[in-house]
């Protein structure tokens, strides 16, 4: 259950922050969605949260991002209680791409990415050269520079999703949380997004992504968190935790778990519903 060792911090482009859920319980009214979860996504790694529909994985992400206040336990950012951190300060350190992200018509990619600088602005601190540099860097990092002037509604799904990720990159946070960023995308665009997320993690960020697709999680995650009914049932490197037993427990599916000869990562082959 211990997270893998963190990579050498010298690699980190940003000061890496440590995000930790300490026995966090999240509830929607009386219904408990996330039950006393302990989680410390490793910095510099891509952490994927998987589980069946309604298992609480999106709620967990909302809890980690301060959107959902814990009913019990605490989320700690570098040892400080996230719930007591001022909203803007938290937003300078944790970037969030919600599932319901939607942009008004007529917005360009650059317009969208500029929103990422809002946590760094204030009443007296308006748009600055640093903000522009951060936006340019985010566009470069996401391969969106050439599309910066394009209207969002004219882009492909994958490009649009990269534009949204560029917004969170421009936020220049050490932690990046994404809720199902690939749910509406085809295979090519899914890989496009995950390649990008892996790079962002490799630059020293703590990247946590809620993902529906177990195959994608196995292929790209350094660290896998499996949830069922609000509880964490497994955590660790995909090749260690992904087993036929886990698949049966999570989804009620009989599956074979093979090894990809090229990457040595697990390949899940569904064979049928579990009896």
């Amino acid at each position: 259950m211990t997270p893998p060792a963190t990579p050498p911090s010298a690699q980190a482009a940003d000061p890496s922050a440590v995000l930790r859920a300490d026995g966090v319980t999240l509830a929607h009214g009386q219904a408990i969605a996330v039950d006393t979860i302990r989680l410390a996504p490793p910095p510099g790694r891509l952490t994927a949260v998987v589980g069946p529909n309604g298992c609480g994985k999106s709620t967990l992400l909302a809890g980690l991002s301060r959107l959902h206040r814990p009913a019990g336990g605490t989320v700690l950012l570098d040892g400080r209680d996230l719930a007591r951190l001022p909203a803007r300060e938290a937003a300078r350190r944790i970037g969030l791409l919600p599932q319901s992200a939607q942009a008004p018509d007529g917005l360009t990619v650059a317009d969208l990415v500029r929103f990422g600088r809002q946590p760094h602005q204030g009443l007296l601190r308006q748009w600055s050269p640093q903000d522009q540099q951060a936006v340019d860097r985010a566009l470069t990092a996401t391969g969106m520079t050439a599309l910066a002037g394009r209207l969002l509604e004219t882009l492909s799904g994958g490009q649009r999703q990269r534009a949204w990720i560029a917004l969170t990159v421009a936020q220049e946070t050490a932690v990046l949380l994404l809720d199902e960023p690939t749910s509406a995308l085809d295979l090519g665009h899914q890989l496009e997004v995950f390649e990008l997320l892996r790079e962002l993690a490799a630059a020293g960020r703590t990247v946590v992504v809620v993902v529906h697709d177990l195959m994608l999680a196995c292929r790209y995650a350094d660290h896998l968190v499996a949830m069922k009914a609000g509880r964490m049932v497994a955590e660790g490197a995909p090749r260690e935790v992904v087993t036929p037993e886990l698949i049966r427990r999570l989804y009620g599916v009989e599956a074979g778990v093979l090894r990809d000869p090229d990457t040595d990562r697990p390949l899940v082959v569904p064979r049928g519903l579990a009896p």
Binding site: R66, L67, R88, A90, A91, S100, A101, P104, G116, Q118
Partner: peptide, 12 residues
């Protein structure tokens, strides 16, 4: 305009 979760994520 980006949705309330996104606005909250930006510190609003």
């Amino acid at each position: 305009a980006l949705g309330e979760p996104a606005a909250a994520g930006l510190g609003h």
